[in-house]
């Protein structure tokens, strides 16, 4: 589905030079116009923490934070993000400690196979940045862009509910 026919030559399909900060590290990258942000991460940079579930915006597995906002990296082109600051699942933990959202997912056993987990966690951190979702129903609604085929939703909800106030700097719940 994503196989790209090589360009027929000529410079109309030129490689573009972009600079991207990924998890705090500056990258100068050459990208083809049709490389999605997700493929840039996984295929060009071998950063496979971000997952490809559907490649069509329908599952949320590819969620990353661009300038702190959660987006689906499968439905955007890398070339469109020149100068952006990107945070992926690999960039959330500090040297010696998990991010509070990661810790809450571990504590609540908020996964089974784990495939949706990086997207869930990035999405939940994005939700914390939005400063919204103060009730259980709101958390469910605002996390609905992340599907979990294993159906770990209850534990995901509990993890997010516990970590949201901490992530928002409101102390523990």
């Amino acid at each position: 589905m994503n196989a790209i026919t090589p360009p027929p030559g000529g410079n109309s399909h030129a490689v573009h030079l972009i600079s991207l900060s990924i998890n705090g590290k500056k990258h100068e990258l050459e990208v083809r116009p049709w490389t999605t942000l997700l493929d840039l991460l996984r295929e060009n940079l071998q950063m496979t923490g971000t997952k490809k579930g559907c490649d069509h915006g329908q599952c949320g597995a590819c969620t990353v934070l661009v300038d702190g906002r959660r987006i689906n990296s499968c439905l955007t082109l890398a070339v469109m993000h020149d100068g952006a600051e990107l945070t992926t699942i690999e960039g959330l933990a500090s040297e010696d400690a998990l991010h509070p959202m990661q810790a809450a997912f571990v504590k609540h056993d908020a996964f089974q196979c784990g495939y949706c987990t990086p997207g869930q966690i990035c999405s939940a951190v994005g939700l914390a940045n939005e400063g919204r979702a103060h009730s259980s129903a709101e958390i469910r609604e605002m996390m609905s862009g992340n599907l979990c085929r294993c159906g770990a939703y209850n534990n995901i909800h509990d993890a997010v509910q516990e970590a949201l106030p901490v992530c928002r700097g409101e102390g523990t719940a």
Binding site: G57, G60, I71, N72, E130, G145
Partner: peptide, 9 residues
């Protein structure tokens, strides 16, 4: 409509 991530884009 859509999802929070999609609405951000």
């Amino acid at each position: 409509g859509a999802s929070p991530q999609l609405r951000n884009m």
